[in-house]
Structures are given as structure tokens and as C-alpha cells.
Design a protein around this nucleic acid. Structure first.
Lengths: 107, 107
DNA sequence: ATTATATTCAACCACATGGTTGAAGAATCA
DNA sequence: TGATTCTTCAACCATGTGGTTGAATATAAT
């Protein structure tokens, strides 16, 4: 099995949706089937199934077929990877230059 | 000045684009004008200006008008906030249940 | 075998996104 | 003033996104 490297576009895009972030949080309490997940939202079953496809493409969840059920579980590694990735964006920028008030105070 | 709370949809959407992530990285080395930023990409000036609007809407950058120039600087606070926000998604999920091999080994 | 349940798939729709070009504004330079 | 530079804005276009409905498929229950 080849270890695919993360597609950051996919991951950030998947996270840029309230419903998908909410689904991910639900999975904190354990595995759920698609039907169980879909019950909590007012949108159609097919819409939730699509959201799960987006989350799967982003490697944020796993799907495991069990009989006619699809069991969905979170992939904590991807969130960890994204957090690690974001470190390169934590720039050491002197905040004074972003703050007009301080610049004025100093002059 | 009212402190707006972060719009996570906007932030993740802004990060879900290679060009925008690259622009953000460029800003690690300091402030830049729109023209300076745009010079490094093959797309049109207007396209880069749009990307900067998306980054500004996400509070990932600041814009400061200086004469006819727009000076762009990074907003490190937003990246910090997003990293903090992601902590709630770092679920303590027993990885054995995500790993079929281990389940088989144990049986 | 029939029926019910869980999921997938395809077609469709309204709207957003990422790009383009060209014109219009402002600030600076000669 | 006139020309140049930096930026903004509007219109346009192709494609993607988030949602819908309905049909098809596969498994499970009666």
C-alpha cells in the first residue's frame, strides 16, 4: 500500500464547510454509519453522502464497508499533519508594524 | 474598533488554494506591495488582486494604503487561531480500529 | 421470494470560484 | 499639464460546489 502524501487543497477545502466540520466533530465520539450521521441534518441523505466523499478525498475520514453499512471513522493523522504544516505559516512578524496605534504612539 | 471573530469558512477556503498559500509564505519575509507580489506569478495582476481580497476577507493579511501603493502584511494571529481551533479535532481515537491489519493480528 | 433498508449514482439547478480583458480612478513623475 | 504607475472595478467565461430528486444496486429481514 503506497502512502499518499496529503493534498492540502483537498484538506482545507473539506474543512471550509460548517457541515463537514460538524460531521468530523461527531466522529470524535466514535464510528458512525452514514445513516446515523445523516439523521442529524435537515439536508438530504445524498447531500451528506457527498460531504463524506469530500472528507474521504481529503483523508479526514476512513470508510469501511460492513455488510450493507458504511462505517465512518475519523483519521486523526490528517488533522495532526495539517497542524504541523501550518507551523511554517506562523511567521515572526513584529506586530508593531501591523498596528497603526503603536506606530503613532512611538512618534 | 470591534474585534470580529474569525470566520472559519473564509479562513479554510482561503488556505485551500496553492497560489494563496504561496503568497502567504512570501509575506514571511516582510511587507510587499501588490505589484511586487504579482510579478512572481504568470497570472494576471487582477487575479492576484482577487486572491489578496480573499486572504484579506479571511483576516490572513492586512492591507495598508501608502500613497498609491497597497502594502500587504501577514496577520500571524489568524494562523495561530486556526491552529488552536484545530485542537478540538485532534481526537483520541484508538488507531487499532482504523487498522485492519492489527485487528486481524489480534484474532 | 418479497420487502425493507443502506448506499450509490446520474441528472439537474442555482450560485460561487478562478481566471480573463478592458476601462476607470488616484497618486506620482517629468 | 500630461504621461506613467498602481490599483480597483465591472463584465464575462468555464468550471466547480452544494444542494435536490429519482433510479439502480446490494444486503438483510420476514
Amino acid at each position: 500500500m503506497v502512502e499518499e502524501s496529503l493534498n492540502y487543497n483537498n484538506v482545507f477545502h473539506a474543512l471550509a464547510d460548517e457541515t463537514r466540520r460538524d460531521i468530523l466533530l461527531q466522529l470524535n465520539s466514535g464510528e458512525k454509519t452514514i445513516t446515523e450521521i445523516a439523521k442529524k441534518y435537515s439536508m438530504s441523505f445524498a447531500a451528506i453522502a457527498k460531504h463524506l466523499n469530500v472528507l474521504e478525498a481529503a483523508a479526514l475520514i476512513f470508510k469501511r464497508k460492513q455488510g450493507r453499512l458504511q462505517v465512518i471513522s475519523p483519521n486523526p493523522q490528517t488533522v495532526a499533519d495539517i497542524t504541523e504544516y501550518l507551523k511554517q505559516y506562523e511567521v515572526m512578524w513584529d506586530k508593531r508594524f501591523n498596528n497603526l496605534e503603536n506606530i503613532l504612539k512611538e512618534n
